[in-house]
Write a protein that binds this DNA or RNA. Sequence first.
DNA 1: TATGAATGAGGATTCATTCAT
DNA 2: GATGAATGAATCCTCATTCAT
Lengths: 200, 200, 200, 200
Amino acid sequence: MTDSVKPRARGADKRRRLTTAAARVLHEQGVERTTLADIARAADVPVGNVYYYFKTKDELVQAALSEHSTHLDELTGRLAELADPRDRLKALVQAWVDQRDVAARYGCPTGTLAVELDKRTDGSLDVEAGAVIRRLLDWVGDQFRALGVDDADGMAVTLVSAYQGMSLLANALRDPDIMTREGARLADWLDSLQGAGRTP
Amino acid sequence: MTDSVKPRARGADKRRRLTTAAARVLHEQGVERTTLADIARAADVPVGNVYYYFKTKDELVQAALSEHSTHLDELTGRLAELADPRDRLKALVQAWVDQRDVAARYGCPTGTLAVELDKRTDGSLDVEAGAVIRRLLDWVGDQFRALGVDDADGMAVTLVSAYQGMSLLANALRDPDIMTREGARLADWLDSLQGAGRTP
Amino acid sequence: MTDSVKPRARGADKRRRLTTAAARVLHEQGVERTTLADIARAADVPVGNVYYYFKTKDELVQAALSEHSTHLDELTGRLAELADPRDRLKALVQAWVDQRDVAARYGCPTGTLAVELDKRTDGSLDVEAGAVIRRLLDWVGDQFRALGVDDADGMAVTLVSAYQGMSLLANALRDPDIMTREGARLADWLDSLQGAGRTP
Amino acid sequence: MTDSVKPRARGADKRRRLTTAAARVLHEQGVERTTLADIARAADVPVGNVYYYFKTKDELVQAALSEHSTHLDELTGRLAELADPRDRLKALVQAWVDQRDVAARYGCPTGTLAVELDKRTDGSLDVEAGAVIRRLLDWVGDQFRALGVDDADGMAVTLVSAYQGMSLLANALRDPDIMTREGARLADWLDSLQGAGRTP
DNA sequence: TATGAATGAGGATTCATTCAT
DNA sequence: GATGAATGAATCCTCATTCAT
């Protein structure tokens, strides 16, 4: 019987639903404009019950951050199957471009979260948002290193910076095509790199 | 008598103080975390008096946006004195780098404002934030055009995008050096461009 | 015209009404069982407006404490008009007895407040409640000293202790007569004391 | 088999643990500031399970009250072994003094519970708290009667009153020495009693 | 114009109690 | 009997906005 597993399964399920809903709604509405009731509604969970799973709103923000971090892991996991680091980076850029419509409407989930959390003077969530970005930087840096370029970490900053910048502009101008065009430029840049890289 | 002028003068002064305070405090704390009382206090204006000058909080946000727009005008005005468009762009980049400490703490004023306002579904402030960024894009595009490069507007997007991206990363990682390094890279890139702007 | 004074007067008035209401309602219902709405209603002030005068619930508790402290001052002020310290102490006891019905229903305002606040592990209100009691102890000690008895402070503890004890018992047993009987016993005891205060 | 008994035994054990925990935690934190979860945790019983043993929170308060009542019985039971009623009363006072540190931190368990419950307008727990105190009064009165003093019940009120008062003061001032000094005074007073008592 | 005061609609959080296994 | 999970009513507190003078 799966019956005996059900309660716990349902509990885990609710936690999952709340996390997913939090990630989505916080991305769409921002942290401050999102009420717990919004998240609860999106997850189809009674408001009072949210606190069984998350003691504070900040813990939900934290969970959303972890969710984005997990998405990053899944993405880099898939990209790891590509043999050539250059192909991995190009596939990463392509993944960004594929998200152009969401980015044009709501920006990069992690980037916009970081922007909002960095306004805080209290708490440590800002640091955690930075940590997710740093993990992306590290992975990108590893690929550049595998490519044999000088200053792999500097190039990682350039690439991720370009991604955050184009997402912000696409969002501010509500124009997904910016993602497409800048993505193409980045792909060309990656193609042009010999062992020693050139700037875009 | 200057007495009769004083009230009006003081009125204009208050409006100005409120606008300046709004620009600064909204940048530092974000729109949602800033209360009218915060701005009133920073401007040394009684809370109840704010509404004489600004009918809603959004009007204050709007005023802050205009303030940033004015700053942009002043900057481009100064840059216009440089003869070479390439020098103008390089000076622009240098101006960004000069702001690195503020950027590392609070991000680009206009960019972070745009990120926050873009989360809204109501109002039109998001559009206005985009408009400020578009004016920067236009000005940069004009310089690239003067330089004689192909796809001047596309390059403008690349440059402004890089600025927003490096500001966001510097902010998220609390590292002003990112601004310095990426700024240097952008300067190199501008130097490497073939164009009418510089004699051989 | 008193019109121009009115606003401030009304403001001060409201603060006063809130303080008085807080002192009474907190005494009657206890700190934890009293909601801000209870106090607001008793003072006939809209709930949201309470926060204009008191930033937190604890500040209202604090105000209630000050109110009791003021009552104590007023009482000792009146007693100071009596020439003989023994008479002062006896009048103090009489004042306690006069409050027997309130004490039988709700206990000593300061004592019960202290009991409740002493359960807290946070904040400093418990200390302040103790301070009010200590001021009573000090005043009583001064009278005993004036009477020329040995160990005036120890006797003060005994007297105040007796007051707190009889109030607690009267309250727990809902029997005001306990106040009357113990009050009489205390008066006898004061009379029996040898001291400089009374000629033979 | 003891197997079939075990569950019940365990059940009784849990009930006991809950009662003991309730008595302690309610004394330390007060009724209103103590959550069922606090008690459950202190008793190492799952929250949801508490309701198998106690239908409401008030029943737990009631159980705590009974616990204190039982402690009183145990104490008077031990004191009954002393032949002289005066010695019994002096031993009672000594028992109070022995608890001085707890009293200085949390007050008399029954007294502070009574103070808190007396603020209620509903329920009957306030009466029950009074009943425990009355049983103490009755026992003390019996001892005074055995001593042959006039107005034994009045003297009982005086003695118990002194105990409650000194506990409250020790608690409010966080000073256990108050218990020691007042205890000594009470012992002297008991010693000084002839058949017909004198007030302290 | 200026300003202290007022207002009420939320919003996060807590918790006793109940319920489904 | 046992227990994790669920529920919703309450409560404190915030704040944009309005008002009276």
